[in-house]
Design a protein around this nucleic acid. Structure first.
Length: 256
DNA sequence: ATGCCGGGAGTATCCCGA
């Protein structure tokens, strides 16, 4: 089973790229972020035609998350983190093929410090609480999405330039480390512990051709799924396509 | 310190992203 996460940066503007990538790689489940579309404008018919059922949580202009399942309808279990309702569409969760999949788009948080950074840390704390609850239920869970965190120096093309950024400040790296310490496995790190692997290259400053990348998109596995992990990677070449997102899809494979 | 690019809304140019 192949599960991928892809920050599409506009699901409608990215539709040709998304459909081509789905056809070429045929993931069984996909987490999408940054739909940048209200619920009514989600391209459900085109995805259905491509063989994918979907659940989505949109928002006009910004944010927006969705879960796709090949040849199946995801069964939505929640569309925001527990607690107070979030005005921003950043979380959706669904059962797919015997797994629970949480799809998240963690706030960017810049500029830091400031209210956006405080919102990010608060959102991260709510995610930690929900993640702990999921682990306590001992279900097979994948938490996948754009975490907007580079976990370590290995995940940044030039760490010294990013020390004070909301994606790399000590508090957010610590929050990510605390999440892993609950018992989650960072699948890409697990399979490639010493490699520089990026999932994002800025549109600015020719970042793609310079390979000035960041690893921001992660797939975390609950203990039951850790034992089933057979592969993990990034579909880098998609970043070089015409009309590409600034993120490339990251994926894992699980044995049955 | 800022623009550099690009999507969306909307039709000029702003807001946002990371």
């Amino acid at each position: 089973m192949r599960i991928a996460t892809f920050n599409v940066n506009g699901v409608n503007g990215r539709l040709p790229v998304l459909l081509r990538w789905l056809e070429e790689t045929r993931p069984d489940a996909v987490c999408l972020q940054e739909l940048k579309a209200p619920d009514a404008k989600f391209p459900a018919a085109a995805l259905e035609k491509a063989g994918y059922g979907a659940v989505w949580h949109g928002q006009s202009r910004w944010n927006g998350v969705a879960i796709l399942a090949r040849g199946a309808e995801p069964v939505e279990t929640r569309r925001c983190l527990p607690g107070k309702p979030d005005a921003q569409s950043r979380y959706i969760e669904a059962a797919v093929n015997g797994l629970l999949i949480g799809c998240l788009y963690l706030p960017n948080g810049n500029p830091a410090p400031g209210p956006k950074y405080a919102y990010k840390l608060d959102w991260f704390a709510q995610l930690q609480a929900h993640a702990a609850d999921l682990l306590a239920q001992k279900l097979p869970v994948v938490l996948a999405g754009d975490f907007n965190v580079m976990p370590t120096d290995l995940d940044v093309y030039k760490p010294e330039r990013w020390r004070d950024d909301a994606l790399f400040r000590p508090e957010v790296r610590e929050a990510y480390a605390q999440l892993l310490a609950q018992g989650w496995t960072d699948a890409i790190h697990k399979r490639h512990p010493k490699e520089r692997i990026y999932t994002f290259w800025d549109y600015l400053r020719d970042a793609w051709t310079r390979d000035a990348g960041l690893r921001l998109d992660h797939l975390l596995l609950s203990p039951k799924l850790k034992r089933r992990l057979t592969g993990a990677g990034v579909d880098r070449e998609i970043r070089g396509w015409e009309k590409a997102s600034d993120h490339a899809p990251a994926w894992i494979t699980l044995k049955d």
